[in-house]
Amino acid sequence: MGTTNTRRGFRTWWVRTGRFGMSHVILALIALTTLTPFLWMVLASFKALTEVEQLNPFPSVWHPENYIKVFQQIPFARYYFNSVFIAGWVTILTCITSAMAAYAFSRVDWSGRDGFFKLYLATLMIPGVVTMIPNYTLMVKLHLMDSYLGLIVPASFSAFGTFLLRQFMMTIPPALDEAASIDGANSWRIFWDIILPMSRPGVVTLAIFTFLGNYGSFTWPLIMIKSQHLRTLPIGMLFFDTIYGRQTNLIMAASVMNIIPLVILFVISQKFLVKGIQLGAVKG
């Protein structure tokens, strides 16, 4: 009995170490594959143009001034501002509208609620390209073409956000708002003072998602923005690439600057994001 145990233990140990070792090797290889393009991008952004096409990984002379040149050639700071500004407003508005709708779908008990919710959810299936052209003509008619409002307002209503927050609010014990309503609080008070603070992780998750999605939003700004001073980062990058396409080193510098805020935001908010992705996938 004892010997078997020892042998078993040894075997388990061996298998564990061996297998884990293999796993680490495989994972490290995959991580390397993932990282290599990023490394190339960062290194290319410090190279002289003539060196970009050469195989040597490190620049023979480092050119940090490439980054300054980007700001000189295109109003990159303006693009940054526009992207953050627009994505910020969309995030704020989406969180407010979604939280209110989610409250109605989860904490208020009204006749026809669940049927209506299913119908509402089904709209998640509508592809963006179907609404793209009519929304474009709507914006033209409303004279919101080529304006901040035209970029912010249509993006600020999200069925996905409502769904995500509803999932969150469903988990809050009903006793809480019942107690409050006995104390005479009206629905708005319950929403604002109790439910909203309790769904903080959900709101933060939604905020991060919305911000990320709109920071990189491409199609809608592409057809909406006509003026240079309204260009967001993706649109600015596209024009930078078509007009100055041959300056690979500068394009790479711009790309690095484009993705750095995303990386930082991700590292800070990892926990929320991972939770949110998992929560969003649970069927309602």
Partner: peptide
């Protein structure tokens, strides 16, 4: 939470001014 929401809102209203 509420403070955070209101702070963000105010910051972005200021940014709108910018």
């Amino acid at each position: 939470m509420k403070t955070a929401v209101i702070t963000v809102l105010i910051v972005w209203i200021l940014l709108s001014g910018v």
